[in-house]
Design a binder for these strands. Structure first.
Length: 467
RNA sequence: GCCCCCAUCGUCCAGAGGCCUAGGACGCCGCCCUUUCAAGGCGGUAACGGGGAUUCGAAUUCCCCUGGGGGCACCA
């Protein structure tokens, strides 16, 4: 890398501080991070909070926290645009001075009204104030003067050559009337100032490139290389919306997904390793990753596939790590009973949050009966099974109360009643755990203990009524 | 309305002119294993949007159409 003497790459992730980081943003952050690691470059974090109206300083920490959880640690920053206003003002002054920008006092209403009067169907500014030479005032914003003809073109690492007719790029605001900078300006100035070499971001920003290129050129600097990632879309192929989906990374974090599984999955959205092995350590992904290999079309965030990834990662955890990780998702403290069942629970979890469901029966005085499970299990010879189980289990002495023994006992009962073990265990399972699914029954009963087991069987039997 | 981008199984990726009767993964279906449920094993379903052109040969190149998406703010 950098054998041509070029400087090491510098990339940046520049989220707006909107709190709960969007999964699409997380993917963008990840790809930036991967590219930096791959190339020995620097990953810069910059918070884009130039809009005082929407900036929520208190939410910045949440973004940082999420990034840390994902493992996409930054090398430089975080910078905050709200603290760099002088830089933007200086840039605007320079553009004003060299004729690249001018003041404008048109309101949005003025612009729309003129467009309507002129019968134009294309929205946008018409250059009304270009030559009015307005003085600075509290009501004037600053607009960038775009070329009237020619084209603005660039080579995107992922998309190839992209060009726009310059005439379609209307004069745009770079500084608000209150003197604050607009994203287009701040973003360009910062990329220049931070010597960013590769701008890796979502495709929704592809259309802003010409404007930013124009600003950068007017400021007289070398231009960064752009790479626009395909958007993450919903099942309707629309940009993932906060309205209808769990698009916040925090939701996944709270539901017990593992950061390694989550980032591994994100890495397969818009990119795939050449050998087709999708589930693998991030270190390998970093090695294999090439920005130019990124796909061009939108990718659906498939929660089912994420679940599969997470299940794989969860099962790969050693037992201690699983127990430690699952702890904060359980509504009760980890004890020996949980530890005993843990290996069986781990095998059956997709996320940490699933574990509680499987063992909660241990921590209640009485099982919470699921009606559907009850109806299904308490049919046919259920009463006989329960009666026999009560009688037999009661006779097992405390020292012999273990899963192997219980297995034998219930198998014998089943045999006597002409039932397969699977059938015979159903009423017992529901009576004791309240559900028709869960960890293996005999291990569960062993951990629950004889007295509690028998008490629950009796309770279920009486609830069942006379046979 | 205008501009830009995109187009392989339901989904995510492979495929950079012959190796493709298109491969892997998730999902789904079936079978096996089995103490329920998972996990695991085995098998199956399923795609190159349409039309031209180039070529001996096109999923791969070019053009048009269609379809989808994104953008066009004193938001980012």
């Amino acid at each position: 890398m950098a054998s041509d003497g070029a400087e090491a790459p510098r990339v940046r992730f520049s989220p707006a501080p909107s709190g709960n980081l969007h999964v699409g943003s997380a993917r963008t952050a990840l790809f930036n991070w991967i590219h930096a690691r791959k190339t020995g470059g620097t990953f810069i974090l910059r918070i884009e909070d130039t809009d005082a109206a929407t900036a929520r300083p208190e939410l910045v920490d949440q973004v940082l926290d999420t990034l840390r959880w994902l493992g996409t640690e930054w090398d430089e920053g975080p910078y905050r645009q709200s603290e760099r206003a002088d830089l933007y003002t200086a840039a605007v002054d320079k553009l004003l001075a060299n004729g690249s920008a001018y003041r404008c006092d048109c309101t949005t209403e003025d612009v729309d009204a003129r467009a309507q009067a002129a019968g134009r169907k294309t929205p946008g500014y018409d250059g009304f104030c270009r030559d009015r030479e307005l003085p600075a005032a509290t009501s004037t914003a600053v607009r960038f003067r775009t070329p009237d003809d020619g084209e603005v073109a660039f080579d995107d690492v992922i998309r190839g050559h992209v060009s726009f007719p310059a005439a379609d790029v209307v004069d745009f605001v770079i500084q608000r009337a209150d003197g604050s900078a607009i994203f287009l300006l701040a973003n360009a100035v910062d990329d220049l100032d931070m010597r960013v070499t590769h701008v890796i971001r979502g495709e929704d920003l592809l259309n802003t490139v010409p404007k930013q290129l124009l600003v950068m050129q007017a400021l007289g600097h070398d231009l960064p290389v752009y790479a626009h990632l395909p958007l993450l879309v919903d099942e309707g192929r629309k940009k993932l919306s906060k309205r209808r989906h769990s698009v916040g990374v925090n939701e996944y974090r709270e539901r017990g997904y593992l950061p390694a599984a989550f980032t591994n999955f994100l890495a397969t959205l818009g990119w795939g390793p050449p050998d087709g092995v999708e589930i693998r350590p991030m270190g390998e992904i970093v090695e294999l990753f090439e920005l130019a290999d990124v796909t061009k079309s939108g990718a659906f965030f498939d929660a089912k596939k994420l679940d599969h990834f997470n299940g794989e990662y969860l099962r790969a955890l050693d037992l201690d790590a699983f127990v430690e990780g699952v702890a904060r998702f359980l509504p009760f403290a980890i004890d020996d009973r949980f530890r005993t069942l843990a290996p069986l629970v781990q095998e059956r979890c997709v996320t940490f949050a699933d574990a509680g469901e499987m063992v909660e029966f241990l921590y209640r005085d009485e099982p919470e009966i699921d009606p559907a499970s009850w109806d299904k299990a308490m049919q046919g010879p259920a009463a006989e099974v329960l009666d026999a189980a009560i009688a037999e289990f009661e006779g097992v002495d405390a020292a012999g109360w273990n899963s192997g023994r219980l297995h034998e006992v219930l198998a014998a009962i089943g045999e006597r009643l002409g039932l397969k073990l699977a059938k015979a265990q159903a009423p017992v399972r529901v009576a004791v755990t309240g559900k028709s699914v869960g960890p293996p029954l005999f291990e569960s009963l062993e951990v629950l203990g004889r007295d509690a087991t028998v008490a629950r069987l009796r309770a279920a039997r009486s609830r069942l009524g006379p046979s």
